[in-house]
């Protein structure tokens, strides 16, 4: 178990990066273990009882040099609305780092990273971590419309395949459509066993990625999202359906990253 703790830290920057999407950058306490791609934190956004529970957010970036970490979030309720109101120097109450990170590929394996909607945060973090070591890395990013895609995507992460549901930018269609066509072209020229998928996004997208991985005989790691209570493995609230006798696993401790073959994908 990675050591986690509660830290009271401070906001450095909180800015919109796409329609409805914000990036919060905050001081990372020097005594805290470095967060890894796939790991998350929880934030208590209010000192009152509304909203009550801490909310989980995946890390989207960590910079050792300036001692800061970031999350990307979407305003969709009272807690995230409060978060969007945070200004530089405001306090942030975090519990971190939590959960299991993405297993990293060996040098022979080509990572293909796929993000849909709010799933972009942990995928960008992973892309940044892998970019130096995996020149063959491919990043596929999707949103409903062009306005939902963060700017400054290209360049930093090599070739980015962008998709929008309405065709207003990049490929028209879902990230899974784009992944399918990308895999079909690359598997002709290379051994498909050398690729590994990393996905984060809405559940239907993760399920689609899982099915594609099975068809191609490659491994897929998915980062799941679930409502959480304690986020440390105590309450059994954030259960995810898995195959096998236990039937459920905890997103907070066994996850949030799972090998897609372990998950029970039935509706």
């Amino acid at each position: 178990m990675p050591a986690m703790a509660r830290y009271l830290t401070a906001v450095l920057q909180n800015r919109p990066i796409a329609e409805d999407f914000y990036e919060l950058q905050f001081n990372w306490p020097s005594q805290a273990p470095a967060p890894k791609p796939g790991q998350f934190l929880t934030i208590r956004t209010s000192q009152s009882s509304v909203p009550l529970l801490r909310r989980p957010f995946a890390f989207s970036r960590y910079d050792h040099e300036d001692g800061s970490a970031r999350i990307i979030y979407k305003v969709r309720g009272a807690a995230t609305a409060q978060l969007a109101g945070k200004r530089p120097f405001d306090a942030v109450d975090v519990l971190a780092p939590l959960g299991k990170p993405f297993p990293l590929p060996d040098s022979e394996t080509r990572p293909i990273l796929v993000a849909g909607g709010i799933g972009i945060g942990p995928i960008l973090f992973l892309a940044r971590a892998l970019h130096a070591h995996s020149p063959a890395l491919r990043l596929i990013v999707g949103a409903r419309t062009a306005a939902g895609l963060p700017s400054q995507l290209s360049g930093e992460y090599g070739e980015v395949i962008a998709c929008t549901d309405d065709g207003s930018f990049g490929h028209s269609g879902t990230v899974i459509d784009a992944l399918r066509s990308y895999l079909s072209t690359t598997t002709l020229s290379t051994n498909s066993g050398e690729s590994v998928l990393y996905l984060c996004g809405p559940e239907p997208m993760l399920a689609g990625g899982h099915r594609l991985a099975l068809e191609c005989g490659i491994t897929a790691y998915v980062a799941v999202e679930q409502t959480m209570g304690c986020a440390v493995g105590a309450c059994m609230g954030c259960a995810v359906r898995v195959l096998g006798p236990e039937r459920y696993a905890r997103a907070c401790t066994e996850g949030p990253v799972f090998d897609s073959r372990l998950i029970d994908w039935r509706e």
Binding site: L52, Q226, T227, C235, V240
Partner: peptide, 24 residues
């Protein structure tokens, strides 16, 4: 052992939360 109840198991309410863990 008990696997517990169907998901979702937790939801926030005004100043509270509902749980249906099912003695997992």
């Amino acid at each position: 052992p008990r696997p517990g109840n169907e998901i979702p198991r937790i939801v926030e309410t005004p100043s509270g939360m509902l749980n249906s863990i099912g003695l997992a």
